[in-house]
Design a protein around this nucleic acid. Sequence first.
DNA 1: TTGAAAGCGCTACCAA
DNA 2: TTGGTAGCGCTTTCAA
Lengths: 348, 348
Amino acid sequence: MRYVMVQIPNTPASASPAPRSVPTSADVARLAGVSRATVSYVLNNTGAARISEPTRRRVREAAEELGYVPHAAARSLRAGHSRMVLMPAPAFPVGPLYGRFISELQWALGRLGYTVVQYGSVGLHGDEAARAWAELRPVAVLVPGSGPGPRGVALLRRAGARAVVTVGPERVEGAHAVLLDHDGVGHCAGAHLYARGRRRIGVVVPAEPGLEPFSRPRLAGVRAALRGTDAEVTELPLAYEERAAAELAASWRRFGLDAVFAYNDEYAMLLMRALQDEGVRIPDDTAVLGADDLMLGRLLRPRLSTIHIELPAGRDLADLVDRAVRDPGLAPEAHQVLGASVVRRESS
Amino acid sequence: MRYVMVQIPNTPASASPAPRSVPTSADVARLAGVSRATVSYVLNNTGAARISEPTRRRVREAAEELGYVPHAAARSLRAGHSRMVLMPAPAFPVGPLYGRFISELQWALGRLGYTVVQYGSVGLHGDEAARAWAELRPVAVLVPGSGPGPRGVALLRRAGARAVVTVGPERVEGAHAVLLDHDGVGHCAGAHLYARGRRRIGVVVPAEPGLEPFSRPRLAGVRAALRGTDAEVTELPLAYEERAAAELAASWRRFGLDAVFAYNDEYAMLLMRALQDEGVRIPDDTAVLGADDLMLGRLLRPRLSTIHIELPAGRDLADLVDRAVRDPGLAPEAHQVLGASVVRRESS
DNA sequence: TTGAAAGCGCTACCAA
DNA sequence: TTGGTAGCGCTTTCAA
């Protein structure tokens, strides 16, 4: 079905008024009968007690009357810096876990006086994206997922970014890094399944593009956990579609797997359903393990075992950004996020 | 468990170099031995063939060498307008449906030469938020959910926004509106359940804050669909937690409901599981109907009936924004989004 | 073919 | 206690 926009008749009253020009501080000054400097002093509460109360009132009233709003770009141009923290909007589909993390982070940065802006750099890649971000002269850049290369980071720093922080699986030269330990997630999964006596272990790798930075380390972590044991790891590419899951399940017995780590809870649900439809018993024939500890895992039957992931607290990350901004000489640090832990339920 | 940041020792090589000042077009001009005007001409390809090729090369090389990146704020200050489309980041948790919509929209606006910026205005409300947005002097503002009031819209327009578009359930004076027809979703749900012979119909209303703009109209739509019939509607507040669902399910028989419209597929899954655990047969005792047509509905047993929602195509919305920007005199239009349709599976 | 200079809106220094 | 003014980085008109 094709979506169609249907225009609804407007009430005559809603015709827009003639567009006037945007009021500036000069307009406010004129109306209040003072200079632009005075306006600036009053509206920013600088030079504190040095402006008389009547003047202040006149200025404020004039600003109110004109609907004056300061021009952020002009202000930061003059100031030579901004309080903007730029966050490229991630290209991959974000789950609820990550969404909450972003919210919390924005809130924490807001408390510290920063303005968080998510920039949709669709279609831009690598250094090109970094260039686009640099044009905005953010005071800090917070890049989720696999970000710019070292050249991009250098570019951003030259453009005045006092901190570049990547949040993802790998470290980038010149940038602070919050390393999301996806290897650890995989390791945790592998160790758990091994401890449960499983030896032929499948690992789902999403076919969707953009998830490689997460899926690769998770797979590698499973491999690492089982290295030197008698267990065997099989990589299972899987698209997030019913058909793909059904096909995988149809050839399941051929793989001879007694366990599968399904990348996350959503893929686990998809696969588990397909396996059940195929008559595979869970966990008797095959154990299924998810990750992210989403609500839906608790609602499945058998209840889904999962890897609980503790993301960095938004406050901590905000503090890191703030520290780096205040002290740009601060050598880029790498921080390892801890927090992968098994939540065993019924599927493993 | 508390998350902890662990600092990893740095390689000595990663110490940051002395921070130099940000190169400007004047620096480029100096290095290339030309004037700033020439630099501007070359880097923007203006005044087309009027600069000699050798000069162009010198300028480009100088820019490259310095890592020059133009200053967007200075540029738009001079130009008197920007190409920034501001989108307040929604406060409510966005589902995959909405996430895809945003992506598509960003892409489409990007194609039209706009820069999409999501602004995290956590903690700001109403006119205060509008003021914060206005400071950025966006050329257009695209507000998802329940946005600013008429005063906020007026403020934005005075600050130079050539288009204010709300995407949500209600219309705001002075703004273009894309009306997401949540009433229609509820209506569709009510009509379907009635047609299936159900007469005592529950409607889940999420207890989570921020979802009211969607849940209220959906409830109202169900009521509207059943007005004048012998069917009865019961409002069921429900938090997105297992316990809450279990409690609701425990007292289910007391309600005597033979159908429930569960707000969306996720709440439906939550409730359906609780009902099944309670021994309620679906759909025999109670029909369950979700909304949003997510993948997970297809994976439930019985398969979840749902309301498929066709969101506006990003391209269409981008076109609306573009039209409004090009012709600011354009009277605010309201567009009704069509596209609620039943997908009957097994749960109803 | 290139340069000089004005000015976008704002703030901060210095003078009155 | 208030005003004049320079200048942030950029583009664009006018002159050379």
